[in-house]
Design a binder for these strands. Structure first.
Length: 478
RNA sequence: GCUGGGGUGACAGAGCGGCCAAUGUGACCGCCUGCAGAGCGGUUUCCCGGGGGUUCGAAUCCCUCCCCCAGCUCCA
């Protein structure tokens, strides 16, 4: 069975074949001037799953995710203010100070969400030398020109010799941002063609983030870092490039053109382009002005990371989907169901049957089939939940079979990013809770239900769930 | 306007030519419980935006109409 992926470059689902033994993936990461929000996390989760699934299928994977720590511009067409600078000024921080804080937070949250799996998280500012070299090469190869300390990519020249497949059905004319006379700045006017874009931008005097270059002090254009870091860590030609749907245009086509221009390539530099759809919040586009902007930080105060990952797994990466607390609650319940099964199976003594053997085989196949179809995690998840039901129905299977089934659930859930290991009772609290439970059992035996119920309620308030069963009471931490 | 993705049971969401349309949630009923929880079983009817076509057969393919959503300054 082979994995099929929807390739934006061709607009088709294609069987995935890697160029060589190691699958190389570039994932567009974050511009690090603000906190990670639910939408960012949704996208990163998709690429984390991509990596995990490829590895599960036996590939070796090398994935990088860039961290943009030199700001892009707030305005269109290489104009306006640098977002990192802007945010730093507002917070009265040195730009790199802001970046440092945000990067630490980013890693922490990625780790909490179980998606800190990229092999390298390269940062733009750490690759200034390479970026300058890249610009030089593009000029040498005849696709770039300098004007007044800025360097532009010569799009018309490029299209004479190379294709410019604008991803997602856009046309090259769409590059003409600001060409309608709306924006009339010096920098736009100095371009040879309105569809050219900046490789290197001359820094105005007040600009804080600046680096010396052969063309004077400046800073890199938006698309440059991705071309440079991709080539550096993954090579001139590599397998997969991922990003948000918003990057379909113009970022990715420009990045692709740069890759070709800098290495003077004849062939396609990147084979598969994957794009993840955005999520809306309660039916509306997420935006700060609407106040429906949820950060990972605040959501993690209310929900454990696995709940978020279950929520993400429940949506296909290319589908539009809606985030709401209701949907998070649903995700929480799904997770609960799976966890419950694991508990029940682990607690079971086992019996003589081996009914589950077949289900285990089928589960594996179903999972792979679902995931092979362009990473259909919602289907995979639903299969996992059905499988939980089957286990619940066969808790009297042989113990080793139950163990195998549980191991499989953990393994497969792990592939779609849901961490199921380590749901243990709090060791320190254990003897005290046991004591309370014991007392409660004695009360129940004497029909002292009122107090017994109080104990149960009070424990529940402390996130300790008590359940009475035929063979006595058991408890776990919520 | 342009480009792309969609419209499936109360809701969320799979299915993309034929195995009486997954799965979860909600609601209701039953079993089990002192009660609850968890678990199990059942019910939630005739269904797949409208119309036309292709086919022995369509939610699935084609045409057409209607309606949503996203992208089109930077954004995951």
């Amino acid at each position: 069975m082979s994995l099929k992926l929807y390739n934006t470059l061709t607009g088709k689902k294609e069987p995935f074949e890697s160029i060589d033994d190691v699958v190389k993936i570039y994932s567009c990461g974050q511009t690090i001037y603000e906190d990670m929000h639910i939408g960012n996390a949704k996208t990163y989760s998709a690429w984390d799953v991509l990596k995990r699934y490829l590895e599960w299928k036996g590939h070796e994977v090398f994935q990088i995710m860039n961290i943009t720590d030199v700001g892009h511009l707030t305005d269109d067409a290489d104009q306006g203010e640098d977002k990192i600078e802007k945010s730093a000024k507002e917070k009265k921080l040195e730009p790199m100070e802001l970046v440092t804080k945000q990067v630490i937070k980013f890693y922490k949250e990625m780790d909490l969400l179980n998606m800190c799996t990229a092999n390298v998280f390269p940062r733009a500012t750490g690759h200034m030398v390479e970026m300058i070299e890249c610009v030089k090469k593009i000029i040498e190869n005849g696709y770039g020109y300098e004007v007044n300390g800025s360097v532009y990519f010569d799009v018309p020249k490029f299209t004479e010799e190379h294709s410019y497949p604008v991803l997602g059905g856009r046309t090259i004319d769409d590059l003409q941002v600001g060409a309608g006379g709306r924006v009339s700045s010096e920098q736009i006017q100095e371009k040879k063609s309105p569809i050219d874009f900046a490789l290197w931008i001359k820094a105005p005097p007040e600009h804080l983030m600046r680096w010396p270059s052969p063309w004077g002090e400046g800073y890199p254009g938006w698309h440059l870092e991705c071309s440079v870091m991709g080539s550096k860590y993954l090579g001139e030609i590599f397998d997969i490039h991922t990003g948000g749907i918003d990057h379909i245009f113009p970022h990715h086509p420009n990045e692709r053109a740069q890759n070709i221009a800098m290495h003077d390539l004849e062939e396609e530099p990147i084979r598969y382009w994957l794009h993840s759809s955005h999520i809306t919040v309660e039916g509306e586009k997420m935006s700060k002005s609407k106040g429906n902007f949820y950060t990972v930080e605040e959501l993690l105060k209310e929900y454990e990371p696995s709940v978020l990952r279950t929520f993400f797994a429940g949506i296909h990466y290319r589908s539009h989907s809606d985030f709401s607390f209701k949907s998070l609650e649903e995700a929480k319940k799904k997770l609960h169901r799976i966890k419950n099964t694991i508990r029940l199976a682990e607690e079971s003594e086992g019996g003589e049957k081996d009914t589950l053997i077949e289900s285990i085989d089928r589960m594996r196949k179903d999972f792979e089939e679902a995931m092979d179809e362009d990473l259909n995690t919602p289907l995979a998840l639903s299969k996992l939940i059905s499988f939980s039901g089957e286990i619940n129905n066969n808790l009297d299977d042989r113990k080793e079979i139950l163990e195998e089934a549980v191991a499989l659930i953990k393994e497969l859930a792990g592939v779609i990013g849901i961490e199921l290991e380590g749901i243990e009772t709090d060791v320190k609290a254990e003897p005290y809770v046991d004591l309370l439970i014991e007392i409660r059992q004695k009360l129940r035996a004497k029909k002292g239900y009122e107090l017994a119920d109080t104990i149960r309620e009070r424990l529940e308030n402390l996130d300790v769930i008590v359940e009475d069963t035929d063979s006595g009471a058991r408890w776990y931490i919520k």
